[in-house]
Amino acid sequence: MPQQVRAVVAPGKGEPVRVETIVVPDPGPGEAVVRIQACGVCHTDLHYREGGINDDFPFLLGHEAAGIVEQVGEGVTEVAPGDFVILNWRAVCGQCRACRRGRPWYCFNTHNARQKMTLAETGQELSPALGIGAFAEKTLVAAGQCTKVDPAASPAVAGLLGCGVMAGIGAAINTGAVGRGDSVAVIGCGGVGDAAIVGSRLAGARRIIAVDVDERKLAKARDVGATHTVNSRETDPVAAIQELTDGFGADVVIEAVGRPETYKQAFYARDLAGTVVLVGVPTPEMQLELPLLDVFGRGGALKSSWYGDCLPSRDFPMLIDLYLQGRLPLDAFVSETIALDEVEQAFDRMRDGDVLRSVVLF
Rank of each mutant, 00 (worst) to 15 (best):
residue 248 F to N: 07
residue 248 F to P: 02
residue 249 G to A: 13
residue 250 A to G: 13
residue 252 V to K: 06
residue 253 V to E: 05
residue 253 V to Q: 05
residue 254 I to C: 11
residue 257 V to Q: 03
residue 259 R to P: 02
residue 260 P to V: 06
residue 261 E to Y: 02
residue 262 T to F: 09
residue 262 T to S: 11
residue 264 K to R: 15
residue 265 Q to D: 07
residue 267 F to W: 12
residue 267 F to N: 05
residue 268 Y to P: 01
residue 269 A to E: 08
residue 269 A to V: 10
residue 270 R to K: 14
residue 271 D to G: 05
residue 271 D to M: 14
residue 272 L to P: 01
residue 276 V to T: 11
residue 278 L to N: 09
residue 278 L to R: 05
residue 278 L to E: 13
residue 279 V to S: 00
residue 280 G to I: 04
residue 280 G to K: 01
residue 281 V to A: 12
residue 282 P to C: 11
residue 283 T to E: 15
residue 285 E to H: 15
residue 286 M to Q: 15
residue 289 E to Q: 14
residue 289 E to R: 13
residue 289 E to A: 15
residue 291 P to L: 14
residue 292 L to R: 10
residue 292 L to H: 09
residue 292 L to M: 14
residue 293 L to P: 00
residue 293 L to A: 14
residue 293 L to Q: 13
residue 294 D to A: 15
residue 294 D to W: 12
residue 295 V to Q: 07
residue 295 V to F: 12
residue 297 G to C: 08
residue 298 R to D: 03
residue 298 R to F: 09
residue 298 R to H: 11
residue 299 G to H: 02
residue 299 G to S: 03
residue 300 G to C: 03
residue 300 G to S: 06
residue 301 A to P: 00
residue 302 L to W: 11
residue 304 S to C: 03
residue 307 Y to Q: 10
residue 307 Y to H: 07
residue 309 D to N: 11
residue 310 C to P: 02
residue 310 C to F: 01
residue 311 L to V: 01
residue 312 P to Q: 03
residue 312 P to Y: 01
residue 313 S to Q: 13
residue 313 S to W: 08
residue 313 S to L: 08
